[in-house]
């Protein structure tokens, strides 16, 4: 095991547009290319820095929190780490596989059944089919879903059932790094407790790395070794 940090962000900047252009057409853009200069690193009207000059370093086995108000850029950081989007400027290194518990069940296909979705979602999280076959019953058991619902198309699931299955698949992956976004708002009270217990258990083992985002400062303090405070896209020292 190398001593390099498992997650490293060096001077990371990320730009977003305030107004998402709903319909861009090829014709409009060809005109644009000829009329103004493109420079990706500068702000054009209608753009803003969602993150500016972020430096984060997390070691293997650590549990780290991200705390800040809505719109401060926490979710953007998670998105960058899960490689859904890329930094505009700066360097980002992740030395391990990631299981994002950001929006669990996001990868579900509505036309497929719950059981089929265990496989599509699981492989998306980097698990092999063989792996999933072995873990299938454990995943189903953890989700607490009744067996008959597994043959039901996911489009007929309630959002609670969706989350249960999604969380259950994700938590069974072999990922080195878990990204959690407001996990404490998952499902009903009973399932929430079960999740919290599972997470506590995984954190306790110290071979997985956790990055947890939350508004609940007290809860975050309990779960993590240290906390980054983020405000308006910048890391601050102030609470």
């Amino acid at each position: 095991m190398s001593s390099d940090p498992i997650i490293e962000l060096k001077k990371v900047w990320k730009k977003y547009k305030i107004k998402k252009q709903t319909s861009r057409t090829l014709r409009e853009d060809i005109v644009k290319i000829f009329s103004n200069k493109f420079d990706k690193e500068l702000l054009v009207q209608g753009e803003f820095w969602s993150l500016s000059d972020i430096n984060i370093s997390i070691n293997n086995g650590e549990s780290v929190g991200l705390y800040g108000p809505n719109g401060s850029g926490k979710t953007t950081i998670l998105k960058l780490l899960s490689r859904v989007t890329y930094p505009t400027r700066g360097e980002l290194t992740v030395r391990g596989s990631i299981a994002p518990l950001i929006s669990v069940g996001a990868g579900f296909h509505p036309e497929l059944t719950g059981r089929e979705n265990i496989y599509t979602n699981g492989t998306m999280l980097g698990m092999s089919i063989k792996d999933l076959k072995e873990k299938e019953s454990a995943i189903i058991e953890f989700s607490g879903l009744d067996k008959k619902f597994l043959e039901l198309q996911v489009k007929n699931y309630s959002s609670g059932m969706n989350t249960r299955l999604g969380f259950s698949v994700a938590v069974h992956s072999d990922a080195d790094i878990f990204l959690l976004d407001e996990i404490l708002a998952v499902g009903d009270t009973k399932f929430r407790e079960k999740c919290a217990e599972k997470i506590n258990d995984l954190i306790g083992q110290r071979n997985k790395t956790f990055l947890i985002v939350s508004h609940q400062h007290e809860r975050l303090k309990e779960l993590t070794d240290r906390i980054y405070y983020i405000e308006k896209g910048k890391i601050t020292d102030l609470v």
């Binding site: 497929l112 698990m127 092999s128």
Partner: peptide, 18 residues
């Protein structure tokens, strides 16, 4: 190919819907 299984599942998914 770490995502070979994903490709298989995706093909199978399209196939089974179709």
């Amino acid at each position: 190919m770490p995502f070979k299984d994903l490709l298989i599942v995706f093909i199978w998914r399209q196939f089974s819907v179709r």
